[in-house]
Design a protein around this nucleic acid. Structure first.
Length: 657
RNA sequence: GCCGCUUUAGCUCAGCUGGUAGAGCACAUCAUUCGUAAUGAUGGGGUCACAGGUUCGAAUCCUGUAAGCGGCACCA
């Protein structure tokens, strides 16, 4: 006999080998009907598994949040069955559950197209209606290999070989169809329900390895019910509406064109945001003891050989030479992909003393990297971008303190832009690296302490984690990931400790005892790339920027030409006070003007008609609201100015008051 | 870079199985002076991404190139 503990704490006795389904039936017929799986000791398993030892048990019904994973996984199996039924000869490979759904990778000479999806989906619904039971068998390696080889499933053979010896080889069957799978699965295909949809086809490398064959992946999404599915599809539509590439065009912020893949043409309004962002960062850096520098765009290849970039980063670099037909100058220059070598040159210029450390060198550095063509994505991944870069030359003792100072700067910057949820991850030594294990041990220990402090200081608000083996080859690093308004995560900031570059360039400082010492170099970026950060901001705010950041803050719109003179006086006054304001005197109806500027996402429309001109007032309409407020021009100006003050300056004003 | 798809006016898109281009918005002109999300009329605008090929004839079919999109790989 065995003893099973139920969620309510009760303990009941069962015969050893009782299955989860029998347990559920013992409780009630309706529970048995609704149940899709069980947890034993907290682990999700098949209802059909015989229970052989004492354990805590919980019957999982289809409504349970934990069932969603099973719904998706089962849907993947059913999709694979549907595909093999419709397209005989297609090999199946792997089909895991992912966020919001599932996919399955298939090998077939002819790739699938989007037109195939409805057919596959219809077949899936047919299979689900058959409601075949999922059954599990444990096969021997030899048998499994024989059966899959006979079916022509070459990829499955590879998977079987990859399963560690001693681990059971499980086969799940639904009707005639079966697949190698670690499970668990629900009771039958009917429990998948109908709230699923196949979303896209894409290529994917076998085992995620670009040297291996390309398979066809079909993605699907699956949910408990239609309401959840609809909500998800709606969310996708909303995300599409705030796509920064779309908004960039609609709001006239920037464009790309064929001659410049991955490089941005910033239009006036977009550039205004770009400059506002840089101005903000500059104001933040100044009181923190940073010095801003500017290193050349183009440097002789030899310098990049010294830095090591020419050796291991060449594939990602652009090179330039004199283009003249008759030139005798054969020198090859590289367009900088990073600012660090330039900064080391500045550091090296003139003798540095330990008294100069920590030396914090910042640059809004434009860099160019030859990114793979398939990686380019709007502003998010470009070939020419501006980093809010800085390098801190310091001693090992100063390292931890500097990392914490950078952390403060990063977190407060994100907060000013409305990002409260931040994750900080420490990336540790990769396989390919420079420096002795002792140096890495020490650096990682320091960084680990810093990470702990970061978590403690935030009072638990900042989540932390470790990325094993993800560090740069020259040192460990912190990666800062923020979460936007619709829950997507973006890696932006980074702090990297570097024991390599200063030494390569022979950079040193004179220590208190008169000896030459090599400084530690900390690379850090907050926005990462200004372009990318702006892309994130556009999507985060869906174009509805806070007043201080909006490219056009105010439009003064007239109703009839009678108020033209007054409107011009108003806009002059707003501009003189430092606001980015435009005036709209066109011979158009006010409805038309309000619509147009609302669509353009201008935060404030000041309507000036005859009445306002006579009274010296303005009529204020805020974006997203139909309400209008009347105020005197002076009052409105004062209010707008206060609101348009960037958050860092507001803090400064508050501190002074 | 790899797999698939796409590329027609500034934007969004239509153009069936080949017979040499069309809409809405935008733009310009004229009329309208109208109080909070589209006033009306008229007009201009396209070597159909680029280069080849098939054909009497190509936006349409084929090949290549480029860029973009969705993934994968990459992302110091």
């Amino acid at each position: 006999m065995i003893h099973l503990t139920f969620p309510d704490g009760s303990v009941r006795e069962f015969a050893a080998g009782t299955t989860g389904r029998q347990v559920a039936e013992g409780i009630s017929k309706s529970l048995a009907k609704k149940s899709v799986a069980m947890t034993l000791g907290g682990t999700l398993t098949d209802l059909s598994d015989p229970i052989t030892a004492d354990a805590s048990i919980e019957i999982v019904t289809r409504e349970d949040p934990r069932a969603l994973e099973l719904i998706r996984h089962d849907a993947a199996h059913v999709m694979a069955e549907a595909v093999q039924e419709l397209f005989p000869g297609t090999q199946v490979t792997i089909g895991p559950v992912i966020e919001n759904g599932f996919y399955y990778d298939f090998a077939r000479p002819e790739p699938f197209t989007t037109e195939d999806l409805p057919k596959i989906e219809a077949k899936m619904r047919e299979i689900i209606t058959r409601n075949a039971h999922f059954t599990k068998e444990v096969w021997s390696r030899e048998e499994a290999k024989r059966v899959f080889a006979a079916k022509g499933e070459a990829f499955k053979l590879e998977l079987i070989d990859a399963i560690p010896a001693g681990q059971d080889l499980k086969i799940y069957k639904q009707g005639q169809w079966f697949d190698l799978c670690r499970g668990p699965h629900m009771a039958s295909t009917g429990q998948i329900g109908s709230a699923f949809k196949l979303t896209k086809v894409a290529g994917a490398y076998w085992r995620g390895d670009s040297t291996k064959p390309m398979l066809t992946r079909i993605y699907g999404t699956a949910w408990h019910d239609q309401v959840e599915l609809d909500a998800y599809l709606h969310m996708l539509e909303e995300a599409e509406k705030r796509d920064h590439r779309k908004l960039g065009r609609e709001m006239d912020l920037f464009h790309f064109q064929e001659e410049g893949p991955g490089v941005v043409f910033w239009h006036s309004k977009g550039w205004s945001m770009f400059q506002e962002l840089i101005a903000y960062m500059r104001r933040r850096l100044r009181p923190l003891g940073y010095q801003e520098v500017n290193a050349p765009q183009l440097l002789d290849k030899s310098l990049w050989e010294t830095s090591g970039h020419w050796g291991w980063y060449k594939e990602n670099m652009f090179a330039a030479q004199s283009a003249g037909d008759d030139t005798e100058d054969e020198r090859v220059f590289a367009i900088k992909p990073m600012n660090c070598p330039g900064h080391v040159q500045i550091f090296k210029h003139g003798l540095k003393s330990y008294r100069d450390l920590p030396l914090r060198m910042a640059e809004f550095g434009a860099v160019h990297r030859y990114e793979p063509s398939g990686a380019l994505h709007g502003l998010m991944r470009v070939r020419g971008f501006t980093q809010d870069d800085a390098h801190i030359f310091c001693t090992e003792e100063q390292m931890a303190d500097e990392c914490l100072k950078i952390n403060d700067l990063i977190l407060s910057t994100y907060a000013d832009f409305g990002f409260g949820e931040v994750v900080v991850k420490l990336s540790t030594r990769p396989e390919k690296r420079v420096g002795s294990d002792a140096v890495w041990d020490h650096a990682e220990a320091v960084m680990m302490r810093v990470l702990k402090t970061i978590e403690e200081q935030s009072g638990g608000k900042i989540k932390t984690g470790i990325l094993e083996g993800e560090g740069a080859f020259y040192g460990p690093k912190f990666e800062y990931t923020l979460r936007d308004a619709i829950g997507r995560e973006w890696q932006c900031g980074t702090t990297q400790v570097d024991f390599n570059l200063p030494e390569r360039f022979g950079a040193f400082y004179v220590d208190s005892d008169g000896t030459k010492k090599t400084p530690v170099m900390i690379h850090r970026a907050i926005c990462g790339s200004m372009e990318r950060f702006l892309g994130i901001l556009i999507e985060h705010f869906a174009g509805h920027f806070p007043l201080w950041f909006a490219p056009v803050q105010v439009v003064v719109a007239t109703i009839t030409s009678e108020a033209d003179g007054y409107a011009e006086a108003v806009v002059d006054k707003l501009r003189a006070a430092g606001l980015r304001a435009e005036v709209d005197l066109r011979n158009e109806k006010i409805n038309y003007k309000v619509r147009e500027h609302s669509v353009a996402k201008v935060p404030v429309i000041l309507v000036c008609g005859k009445r306002e001109a006579e009274e010296g007032t303005v009529n204020i309409r805020r974006l997203g609201s139909r309400d209008q407020v009347s105020a005197t021009l002076d009052q409105a100006l004062a209010d707008l100015l206060a609101e348009a003050t960037p958050p860092d300056l507001q803090r400064k004003l508050a501190a002074a008051a």
